[in-house]
Design a protein around this nucleic acid. Structure first.
Lengths: 255, 255
DNA sequence: CGTGACTTTGAGATATATCAATCTGAGTGG
DNA sequence: CCACTCAGATTGATATATCTCAAAGTCACG
């Protein structure tokens, strides 16, 4: 799937054809291949660039001393892994591929130049950042207050919507390279419990699964099972109540 | 406690006396008082300003349909509640005071002007944003992979360090207005289990508590109990390995 | 010296963890 | 084309952290 980045950003702010082309060109440069489960960033690394996911899935995770692991988020094609703003900061977590993946490392300085040259892109990147925060918080809600079934359903909904915006949902389903152990580490449960919960959802007809391909025959029902409300993942209706002004990204010029 | 905001930002980037003065002045204007448990932002609101906490504690939370509630973060004196970048976005969660609080609403447009006029301040605000992300992820780790005792200890450590940087830790302790129900909603457990876990920590000599004042006789031991590593909350050592360049905040000029 | 908001305690219930097999299916080499 | 192999998925039986419900305590405040 091409042009995944521009598709994602265009969903966050209207982009001109010129801007889309710019993003697509940038994305084609500097490619790098990752084997499954390969670390891309290690906790403590100083960050000088962000990686754009071209294909495959990437995740951020924390490893505790005694082996417990928590995945704190997935990066899907079109996502930028790691804080766009964090130049020079040291990373608080690991970032690794989930399956075979292709990424494109973009120095933060370059990203910044682009944001300056194309304000709409800068604006989209800001909104992307805000979105990332909202997703992160929704994970806390799942981990804190939803049971295993709801967590799994919620995650699948999140992924379904996010993949949808970059055109990776086909036939009401998507390819998902996440192993049951990984689901466990993302959902804060045990691999065997993931297995049982998956069976539970399948038995309820909420998902079908052929090897690594999930299909969702009735998305509204899956949303209900996960207490999922897509609002936090999508753009607010333009010209909504009170939001008369165009959204402006702030914190400009802080270099 | 005065100058709480400038203290916090100065810990994130070196500020001149002029900049500190600017922040302190701004903070004194536009004050607003909040009763305990008063909503400041409601899910769905369009955001046009951020609130700076002058005193008291504020939290962000999600309310599920059936009454379950998850607190996804606390805002302490000197913290900015809500995304600095989110002008015009609609809020994904509620923001409410925990106890009596004083806040100062700052229009995002004004914040942006200041960031432009004083680059160091803009830089500090960017780092603040990155920090907020790291804290949020650490909550996911706690909720997903730490048991009740570790979660509570970890949260107390986080708060201890954060309050420390704004000068609100005295006698190795701090005032904490969080009720047991609130702890429960933050930690993803039950109020009665909070109670028992609190007793557990007290029995182990890890904390002492007189009404709402927590004291921490042996911080390293509390850190160990919570698997807490303060790295993610503090500035990387200046001139650390590989981080030769000054950290630059990016995404400038996206309006 | 009530009264209401919290906290504390006890006893039984349950979602999820743990441990230990067994199964399956996609490679791989002969 | 068929046995091997190995990672991952599945199953069963038992253990446990945490929940639930319900009652009783405490403390600040009017």
């Amino acid at each position: 799937m091409e042009a995944v980045w521009s598709r994602k950003l265009a969903a966050l702010a209207p982009l001109t054809a010129r801007e889309v082309a710019e993003l697509d060109t940038l994305m084609r440069s500097r490619s790098r291949h990752l084997a499954p489960r390969q670390d891309l960033v290690v906790e403590g690394d100083a960050v000088q660039s962000v990686a754009l996911v071209r294909s495959g899935w990437v995740c951020r995770y924390k490893q505790l001393v005694d082996g417990r692991r928590q995945i704190t988020g997935f990066f899907l094609p079109g996502d930028l892994c790691g804080s766009h703003l964090a130049t020079g900061e040291t990373s608080d977590m690991h970032v690794a591929s989930v399956n075979e993946a292709e990424i494109c490392e973009i120095p933060t300085a370059l990203l910044q130049e682009i944001a300056q040259a194309y304000p709409a892109i800068g604006h989209a990147l800001c909104r992307d950042l805000v979105l990332e925060g909202a997703i992160q918080r929704s994970w806390s809600v799942s981990l804190g207050r939803r049971d295993a079934r709801e967590r799994l359903a919620h995650l699948l909904c999140e992924v379904y919507v996010r993949l949808g915006t970059v055109g990776l949902v086909t036939d009401d389903g998507f390819h998902c390279p996440v192993r049951q152990v990984d689901f466990a580490d993302a959902l804060g449960i045990t691999p065997v419990h993931v297995n049982r919960t998956l069976q539970d959802l399948r038995a309820a007809g909420l998902i079908h699964k052929r090897s690594r391909f999930f299909s969702v025959p009735d998305f509204p029902r899956l949303m209900a099972a996960g207490l999922f409300h897509p609002g936090y993942l999508s753009k607010p209706p333009p010209g909504g109540p009170g939001a008369s002004g165009q959204a402006r990204s702030s914190l400009a010029a802080a270099a």
